[in-house]
Design a protein around this nucleic acid. Structure first.
Lengths: 213, 213
DNA sequence: AATTAAATTTGATATATATCAAATGAAATA
DNA sequence: TATTTCATTTGATATATATCAAATTTAATT
């Protein structure tokens, strides 16, 4: 799953119509800096020559269950989800939108086979950062180590919030909360994925949406 | 809530009888190093002269709701919980045992009033590290920055696991999982706290414990 | 040891949401 | 445009766990 998901401006106009601005390393790295922390010039240079820009179609599978997923992706544009199969059922565990980082956390941090799949939901431009690169940059630049800490801290806080939400809110409230954080989500992501992310059934979500809201 | 909670050996003999070994800064810091990452001598020295050893009784409240909680505690011995009041009801959000770090994450990382209380459950020896100290050490020693990242990463992974568990396991399974990670928990922590931590009622927990197990 | 208070267990009932099943609507493909 | 496939909605029923209430057990205090 995961790395973070701030409440940021979307890159989308009307449902589905994603602008695909020409993305250079410079622009992407500038986005990282402005959303997280700034980096020294040499660190940025090293990042640039050791990472890759990916332009991907909808439905691309970036990571499969069982793989050693040793890359982190920064989403320059588009949207992605991490999911796993629980008794054969597809369960969304995390979404990443513009300016979020995402990886298969278990695999990436514990170097174990990934329980997650990572799938592209909208045409995406990503910056792919290999773990080796990230580790080296962390060793050489305290600012990069700090960037990682910042991203992880954000993620941790969100996970904690989500636990509170799951424990004490009913289906309706959970959905409202998600909408508050991500008002455009229903235009960008299928209801099945939203439902499983919220830990409710598709049917319940549908009913919630029809009454009132 | 939180910072981490590895599956370690307890410091307890028989329920309630906690040995209180003489704890020096050296010994505590050695424990931090052996459980997380090692630190340069100068960093350890700075940590020592800028932190405090606390010896606390059961029921001590370390942090109250509303406070700006800018300390992290390393548990040298004993056990602690973080909880909050949800509609007046006491909900345990995190436990910390020997060799765990704990702080009021929201307050500490976002510098906002703490939604949590932190309460001592067993006589404790703690190392209290002010945020200023932690921040300075992070700036001066990449190893300390890395220590923080390690602790936060562990916490994040545990939170993610807990979400999966909350979403797909029934009360029984949740309890079993907790027991697997922390077999001694029932001797050290009240069932009410365990129940609210698991997101089930005390009554349900009691029933689960009586049938079978 | 007796008394009070707190923690846990046990019981009866209510309820939100899951599950199963089918209908409708929207999008993709021929 | 017709046809197939996939996504969403709607309905009927089942179920795990919550809630409320009380009994019992354990621990703390006098």
């Amino acid at each position: 799953m995961l790395l973070t998901w701030p409440n940021h401006v979307s890159n989308t106009n009307i449902a589905g119509t994603v602008k695909t601005p020409k993305m250079t390393y410079e622009k992407i790295i500038r986005n990282i800096e402005s959303n997280y922390t700034s980096l020294p010039t040499e660190c940025k240079f090293e990042l640039k020559i050791n990472s890759k820009i990916l332009t991907l179609d909808k439905e691309t599978i970036l990571v499969k269950e069982g793989q050693y997923a040793d890359k982190t992706y920064f989403v320059a544009s588009g949207c992605i989800r991490a999911y796993y199969l629980k008794d054969g059922k597809d369960v969304t565990d995390w979404f990443a939108f513009e300016n979020d980082f995402i990886n298969s956390i278990n695999s990436y941090f514990q170097n174990i086979p990934s329980p997650h799949y990572i799938e592209v939901l909208e045409p995406c431009i990503l910056l792919e950062i290999p773990r080796d690169t990230a580790n080296r940059l962390s060793k050489d630049f305290i600012e990069f180590e700090r960037l990682e800490k910042t991203v992880i801290t954000k993620t941790m806080l969100q996970l904690q919030q989500r636990i509170v939400s799951m424990q004490f809110e009913n289906a309706q409230q959970k959905y409202q909360n998600l909408l508050k954080a991500r008002p455009d989500i229903t235009e960008r992501v299928q209801l099945t994925h939203i439902a499983s992310f919220l830990g409710i059934t598709l049917e319940t979500l549908s009913r919630i949406r029809s009454i009132k809201n």
